[in-house]
Each structure stands twice: as structure tokens, then as C-alpha cells.
Simulated assay, not measured.
Amino acid sequence: MSDAAPYAALSPDVVLAAVDAAGSWSDGRLLTLNSYENRVFQVGLEDGGFVVAKFYRPGRWTDAAIEEEHAFALELAAAELPVVAPLVFNGRSLLRQEGYRYALYPRRGGRAPSLESPDQLEWLGRLLGRMHAVGARERFHARATLDRPTMIEAPVRAALGSDLLPAHLFDAYRHAARRVDEAVAGRIDAIGPLRSIRLHGDCHPGNVLWTDAGPHFVDLDDARMGPAVQDLWMLAGDEAMMDALLEGYGQFRDFDPTELALVPVLRAMRQVHYAGWIAERWHDPAFPAAFPFAAEARWWEQHIADLHEIADDL
């Protein structure tokens, strides 16, 4: 395993052997699922059905952080929330095979939610209210916090240290990123202290799957401490959608309306983080294939212009 090719040794044989080692005997059927940060596979089982095998990116999370993610998912499932939690084998959910850390999950299909539907948004709001009621019971200790160091400072360092950022745009990017960071810091200071709870962390529509029985949440890989609104804003494209989410949310947990002022801040941090994430992962062959535009100077020029616009608006 190397930083330049973290999954080079993750062959189909290794994936199938990992499933077998857990005691869920595979039948050789293997389908690669869409994932950039980790590697995820659907694997057929001899006794019918499938499991999903998730192999964690080496070096990204500590064992303790992954185990906290798993424990949170299992706690939510125990509270009868529709969260796809890892399978547990002999008391363990974090497993190892050929130097890789992995977990197995039950396969749960579904379609994208209809976020134009107030009824579906209220339903999601109710579930998020219940999820956050559980999340507020205690804190994460090994996982990250949604803050400027993790969402702005570290990604900016990654971009500035990468050959992906054109040399002639280095100073312009650094200046634009500094402006956003200062604007974000000023907005956070103006809002004042807010309560942080355990979150899903990346609750965008792609991590919500809908079936005839209703929605379920997948992929808590970015679970972290942060304000409740982080799990709401990516599902709400406008004020009416947020109102529908909060109508359901309020049936199970009080929402601090002060947090709505954080939405532009969270959106700004996510945009800075996105560019830094691509730059940091560019050595992984999956990233140039998935994000070829990031190798073009014009994309960075537009990103810099976007950052200045964000700073102006904040």
C-alpha cells in the first residue's frame, strides 16, 4: 500500500476473501459501487442475497474514529431509525484483510428522494429530529468537528501544496481563500456559540434512499460534531423546503433558529473543502478520472472568482 496508489493491492480476490473471512461466504459475484474516498463493493452470497463491503481509505481515519462511526450507526438503528448500520461479527464491526480495514453492511436499495415534495421533506425532518435527539446524548471523542481548521485551513494547505493548482494562480488562490476564511470567522463570531451534537455530517440527497416503505440513510463516513443545521441545509434548496424540513423536525426536537444564519457559512466551507479534497486526493488514480476538469487552469480561475463572490456575500 502506498499514498500514491492506496488501493493498488485491493484485488477482487482480496475483496471476496474479506467477505469469506467474516463468515459471509461469497459466491463470486462482485460489483464495484460508486465511491471516491473509500472503495465499496456489492458482493453476492452463497446462501442468497448480497452484502456491501466497504474498504476504508488507509490513513484517513483512526481505528477509534471508525469505531465511533459504527457505534453511532448502531445506536441509531437500535433507536429504530432507518440507518444502514454495519454488521457485527463476534462483537466486531471493523475488520481487517490483507492490510485493509473494512466493514460489511446489509444491502439496502432505493431511489432518490423527491425533495420537491413537502410531505417527503417533513418525513425527513422528523427522522433527522429523532436522529439528532440520539446524537445529542453524548459526544464524539475521536472524530472530527465541523470547523474552520478542518473545512478551510486544512483543504487550503492541501491545494497550496499540490501541483494541481497552477503556479501562476498560487497567490490569487491564497488571497481568495484567506478572504473567505476571514469572512467565515467573522460570521461565526457574530452568530455566537452554538451547541454541537453528533451528526450524519454529509446528509446530501445521494445519502438518502427512498423505498415504498420510506427513506433510509446511508454512509456515515463523515459523521462528526457540529450544529444541527448541517444535516438540514443540503436537503433544502430554498426557504420553503427548509420550512418543510423544520416542520417535521420540530415534532421530535427543538431547533435553534439562530443556526439558520450558519447556512451561508456551511456552504462556503464546503466549497473551499471540495477543491482542497480533490487536490489532496489527486494521486489516487480514481480522482483524475472522475474530476478531469480540476487539471485545467480555467477551473481554478473560476473557483477563485467564486471564492471572492462568497467572501463578498458573507
Rank of each mutant, 00 (worst) to 15 (best):
residue 3 D to S: 12
residue 5 A to G: 05
residue 8 A to R: 13
residue 9 A to E: 15
residue 11 S to A: 13
residue 16 L to H: 07
residue 23 G to I: 10
residue 25 W to C: 07
residue 25 W to L: 14
residue 26 S to C: 11
residue 30 L to V: 09
residue 33 L to I: 10
residue 38 N to H: 12
residue 38 N to A: 11
residue 40 V to C: 12
residue 40 V to M: 10
residue 43 V to R: 03
residue 47 D to Y: 03
residue 51 V to H: 03
residue 52 V to A: 07
residue 52 V to T: 10
residue 54 K to I: 08
residue 54 K to E: 09
residue 58 P to D: 14
residue 62 T to Q: 12
residue 70 H to I: 12
residue 73 A to M: 15
residue 75 E to G: 11
residue 76 L to G: 08
residue 77 A to P: 00
residue 82 P to Y: 11
residue 85 A to I: 05
residue 88 V to N: 01
residue 90 N to Q: 11
residue 93 S to F: 01
residue 95 L to C: 01
residue 96 R to M: 05
residue 97 Q to D: 01
residue 97 Q to G: 02
residue 100 Y to H: 04
residue 105 Y to H: 13
residue 111 R to P: 00
residue 113 P to Q: 14
residue 114 S to I: 06
residue 115 L to W: 05
residue 115 L to Y: 06
residue 119 D to V: 14
residue 124 L to S: 02
residue 129 G to R: 00
residue 133 A to E: 14
residue 135 G to T: 08
residue 142 A to Q: 06
residue 143 R to K: 12
residue 147 D to Q: 08
residue 148 R to V: 15
residue 149 P to E: 13
residue 149 P to C: 13
residue 150 T to V: 09
residue 150 T to C: 03
residue 151 M to H: 08
residue 156 V to K: 00
residue 157 R to N: 02
residue 159 A to D: 01
residue 162 S to C: 04
residue 163 D to C: 01
residue 168 H to E: 14
residue 171 D to N: 11
residue 176 A to G: 05
residue 178 R to S: 15
residue 188 I to G: 00
residue 188 I to V: 15
residue 189 D to N: 07
residue 194 L to V: 14
residue 195 R to E: 15
residue 196 S to Q: 10
residue 199 L to I: 04
residue 202 D to F: 07
residue 204 H to I: 07
residue 205 P to N: 13
residue 206 G to A: 11
residue 208 V to K: 05
residue 210 W to L: 14
residue 212 D to K: 09
residue 218 V to E: 10
residue 218 V to L: 15
residue 219 D to C: 11
residue 219 D to Y: 07
residue 223 A to S: 15
residue 226 G to N: 06
residue 230 Q to P: 00
residue 231 D to I: 08
residue 232 L to H: 05
residue 237 G to K: 06
residue 240 A to F: 01
residue 241 M to I: 00
residue 242 M to C: 03
residue 244 A to Y: 01
residue 245 L to I: 09
residue 251 Q to N: 03
residue 252 F to W: 13
residue 258 T to G: 09
residue 259 E to Q: 15
residue 260 L to F: 07
residue 261 A to S: 13
residue 263 V to L: 09
residue 264 P to N: 09
residue 265 V to P: 00
residue 267 R to L: 08
residue 272 V to F: 06
residue 283 H to G: 10
residue 288 P to V: 10
residue 294 A to I: 01
residue 298 R to W: 12
residue 299 W to F: 14
residue 312 D to P: 00
residue 314 L to S: 02
residue 314 L to C: 05
residue 314 L to Q: 04
